[in-house]
Design a protein around this nucleic acid. Sequence first.
DNA 1: AAGAAATATCATGGAGAGCATCATTATTCG
DNA 2: CGAATAATGATGCTCTCCATGATATTTCTT
Lengths: 375, 375
Amino acid sequence: MAGELSGGDLSRLRQLNALAVIKALQGGPSLTLTEVAKRTGLSRASTEDVVRELLHKGWVAEAGATAGGVGRPARRYRFRAEAGRVLGIDIGGHKIRAVVADLDGAVLHSARVPVTPEMGRVERLEAVDRAAAECLEGAGLSGGDVWASGVGTTGLVDGAGRVMLSEALPEWTGVDLAAHVRRMAPGPVLVENDSKLAALAECWRGVARYAKDMVFLLAGLRTGAGLVIDGKLHRGFANASGEIGALPVLGWIRAQEHLSAASGEAGDVFAAARAGDKAAAAAVRRYVKDLALGASALVLALDPQMVVIGGGFSRSADVLIEPLRRELDRWCIRTPEVRMSALGGEGVVLGAVRLALDDVEERVLDGRTPLVSHL
Amino acid sequence: MAGELSGGDLSRLRQLNALAVIKALQGGPSLTLTEVAKRTGLSRASTEDVVRELLHKGWVAEAGATAGGVGRPARRYRFRAEAGRVLGIDIGGHKIRAVVADLDGAVLHSARVPVTPEMGRVERLEAVDRAAAECLEGAGLSGGDVWASGVGTTGLVDGAGRVMLSEALPEWTGVDLAAHVRRMAPGPVLVENDSKLAALAECWRGVARYAKDMVFLLAGLRTGAGLVIDGKLHRGFANASGEIGALPVLGWIRAQEHLSAASGEAGDVFAAARAGDKAAAAAVRRYVKDLALGASALVLALDPQMVVIGGGFSRSADVLIEPLRRELDRWCIRTPEVRMSALGGEGVVLGAVRLALDDVEERVLDGRTPLVSHL
DNA sequence: AAGAAATATCATGGAGAGCATCATTATTCG
DNA sequence: CGAATAATGATGCTCTCCATGATATTTCTT
């Protein structure tokens, strides 16, 4: 009804300041009150007030004092990352990966269940359940302890967590993943396309940590993209952003074929090219040309600060990155920094964790906090 | 030093609420205190307090009471759009257009000076001066009265307001537009590429008013694009977003040639096609095919809610829009709504006004308000 | 025309949040 | 052991918002 024009109550101010304190404490080492005050811009007195409240509510804990230094030693406080847990799941063609993480995003336990692309829907969902269950058990949790879950999957995902279209896994189209995962972990479940999550992960923990605008390229058996714009994951109106591969002239459809034509297994081609095999080198060259065409379209459209290459082929950085840079140079007005992902196979699942954490943080900010004094 | 984690002082809360009140009043008709209170979510008492302060500072004025209705008639308040002025300038190849607008963005006076693409740098800058001067004079203002200026120009613009590269106007490359305009209007000067500004205008006053993600296509003698993502103009890392035309396979480079090959003047081709000329119709078809290729790349990359066509050719909507829709359908996963701009030649200059107003609003929000009681 | 009803404005007091200031406390240094 | 240093705790002030009730101004009803 009222368009929520911001502003509001005094308690809102306290919420904002409490969140600022949490942000100051999160991730980093334990801090003294004076340090927190300096970082948040609050006065020392107010900081003390806020921290006391957060302490009471269980968001913050006292950490051991550090010796040394003159004067009365300060109490140190840290974010209680262990106050809550989130679940991250990556559903791929060949493996299901699940992790439990704390509120800092530190992985507490992880599980991995191999699957095959040919598996049917039911079988695959069972594998998801197994991975998640193993992971929760390993961390000593039940589903109810999970504050939010993030799920990454191939294919287009709608806003409600249903898979709308998956080319790689035909049986997968139409699965209501959110509903399925919610049966195990009753909290909010956020489902997202895997390329998008990998992009998110790179901006959080990967090589794009300080980039506000970034294009992530999934280079592997499938080719895809994820976009981070202005520090936020860009989904698009129907969650179909980054699907530049659908345009034939941009080459992503045929890109992978160059490699499989040269050899049975894609990975082998890179090895052969590295070893000096002429035919393999030519195949890689053709692959990179096609990959770069679509990438250039994205770069020209968005002018990002950085392009990050992930996916299975990112292991072959040595034969990929330089040719790719050259090809981008050929088409782009300003060639952005090109870097290889260092997250390996963990990118998607980390992005899923980040997605879940974003949801938690948003709810904290709105005051709809699930936490009521855990002490 | 401190990373500004938000939150802060009590006065900040007041600022937020004052801004909410201003937003509630802006644009719309005059409101009573109770109505403002309802819209902002504040209590009536606080609203009264805030409005009194804004009244004193000159942001708000009392409007005539409306008769009718039972009970004591309420005082009505309105946003004092006349409290400040902004200047908007559109520097095109064939015309310079300048407008003075109030804080609501209502155009108070406008001026138009014809130029030619062949004109040299000095001559063109003189024309800019003339347009701006005429406009200011017509509105009875001096440059010092202008709170901020927005300038739109062809070519790439750097962050400081210098033209970095203009293909259409070779002499234009390297001009420091911000510095030049500042000599006349000493306030902040924001310079931006014209396609981007046209996009901004469409989201503000045009057909994309309710779209958060939008792609604007400049279809005319030049072909270009402007992107609005998440309600904000997307500039890119080096202000070079939307330059998808640089990729030859996407056809924007050759798009216009189909038309000029068919006839001397581009406008005539559309007329001829409309009249049933086979050759002209074929030329238009080829043009639309090329235009749609680049547009599809943008749509697939971003998945916007809407595509808006502007520029000179948008007058020929009847022969353009349906074929374009069909072509987009051919390539896109989800074809967005396609609409023609209704702003005509005013798009860029309106976008320039919006740019200036954004700057003003940002400064208001930060409390660095230039206004100190104008009563 | 007088009272009732409706609606707006004005005034008072209270609660929450933040801040400045100063006394107190716990350390280390000399 | 005293001086210097730095954190903590307590007090009182101001600012902002809000609830409540008194007062003012208008229309409607009888």
